[in-house]
Nucleic acid binder design. Sequence first.
DNA 1: ATTAAGTATCTGATAATATGATAGGACAGC
DNA 2: GCTGTCCTATCATATTATCAGATACTTAAT
Lengths: 298, 298
Amino acid sequence: MPSPDSLRAFVLAAELGSFSAAARRMKKAQSAVSTAISNLEIDTGLMLFDRSSRSPTLTPEGRSLLPYANGILLGQQEFSAKASSMSEGVEDRLCIAVEQGIDLTPALNILAEFADHFPHVTLEVLSTGPNDTATLLKEGRAVLGLMTEQESYPTGFQFRGVGHWTLVPVCSAAHPLARFDRVSHTQLRQHRQLVLKSRSTDELGIVGEIKSAATWYAQSPNMILDLVLRGLGWAELPLSVVKDQLKSANLVRMNYRFQQSDVLEGLDLVWTEQHGLGQAGQWIKSQLLNVPQEAWRA
Amino acid sequence: MPSPDSLRAFVLAAELGSFSAAARRMKKAQSAVSTAISNLEIDTGLMLFDRSSRSPTLTPEGRSLLPYANGILLGQQEFSAKASSMSEGVEDRLCIAVEQGIDLTPALNILAEFADHFPHVTLEVLSTGPNDTATLLKEGRAVLGLMTEQESYPTGFQFRGVGHWTLVPVCSAAHPLARFDRVSHTQLRQHRQLVLKSRSTDELGIVGEIKSAATWYAQSPNMILDLVLRGLGWAELPLSVVKDQLKSANLVRMNYRFQQSDVLEGLDLVWTEQHGLGQAGQWIKSQLLNVPQEAWRA
DNA sequence: ATTAAGTATCTGATAATATGATAGGACAGC
DNA sequence: GCTGTCCTATCATATTATCAGATACTTAAT
């Protein structure tokens, strides 16, 4: 059971090659360092320093033991750092729920900076189905959410739009709708629409708009994409999800006859009043709100 | 700078769910644990325990900090263990020189047990050219060696045979000698022999016997093997080195007309008087000497 | 030789920590 | 609801550990 001060004296003396210098660094008397190291030597039963020359040199045993001492000191620093970080109101862990299909690329720099600013905070990024983000927030399992805009949020929810993503109507190259330059409502209605919908039973959690008579639902955009690729229907999917597939020509982008511009879906950053944000949460929230809205268009 | 005792009190109390129990375990008064933890809470600025119920429970902050404390304690145990291990005469590191081509398979179990018996000893296994093993021992860079038997060893060397390995005369399938069922001395002399020889200049360090008029030397058995496979000569090589290649039929095993049995070369375990063995070295030496001699035949 | 810097050790003072006793809270059983 | 048991916090006291300062000795450079 070596005391922290002894270890520090040991490490500093080894580093500086002088007990006196170590004492000055520790703002203690030279005798303190001398006796501390002497005690350490008694405790370990080893000669740690060779004092034959003017400046003490580590013995082989001391050299072998040095990294162990350093490890302990590092551990204590981490302990203290973690403790003071927590005592200053920084959360221990931060959970962010991000709806599947949202491309986090615009936020990656922020996460990297976050790692620097809050090295002791465990970050958890959950990938959720549509509107499950809200559920996680309600249960307190997540403290920040990034999700498609909703008409209304439960009480206690706060939100702010951060941008829009582009919904792209797609079908497989083999699908009948792929033949048309522009498709009408009537044509769309005749084919099965695959809709992104949350697992939860309430009416919330549908991404985009239902335009077809026949609909299938799935929770994940990639699942929808697979179904579309197999020709089972058409869908409106986020650009980031279909970007790669569109290049390979298995997937075809449709053009609506009734709408010229892209279908834009709002992205909201959501948090709750009751589960207050700590410093880390505040930081990441403000950073996310500073991202230019265009960045999310992907 | 939390004291080791505080941390131990913290960890024990968390584990046992009781300050008193922790105090009993530490053989201290209950008040000591109470104040220790109280001080820890003051230092960290955090409530570590919830004392509302009869048995104290960790707060979330305490739970987060617990693994850090445990890490420090583990580090201190390792420090002490390493120190006492060294102070009891166990070496810090143990270097064994093994001549290239010697198959260590019979010793692998011993090494595994060694890791259990001496967890704090760094083991270094050097792979050496012929007789370089002796050089490393002489210089004190290795403390145990496993090498082919020599006629004589330098003064101060001690050795004991542990077994024999089989030297196999081989040539490539394309080599003229490969045509004969049995080869004579005269035939051998007409072809280049590739000999395993140490880098050192003295006359020691030749594995096997020189039988041919023309010889090339190389330091590593694998180098020799490569040369043989390219048809540059014949060689006597350890069975463990050529075993695999013999199966592939690129390499051919020759049979001596003048000698029926396998050519056996002795294996010696070598150590020196001056560089005394520590406990770990003693252990591994005795274990190696207990390996049945047949095990090394590969 | 002399000087400067370093270390070991002793002594008295000081701070940290231990103990033991005491008081009050939580909980199970009657 | 009462009681006994086990628990924790706190206080006063005693013990221990640690510290600073002074001193003597060693090393190395001038």
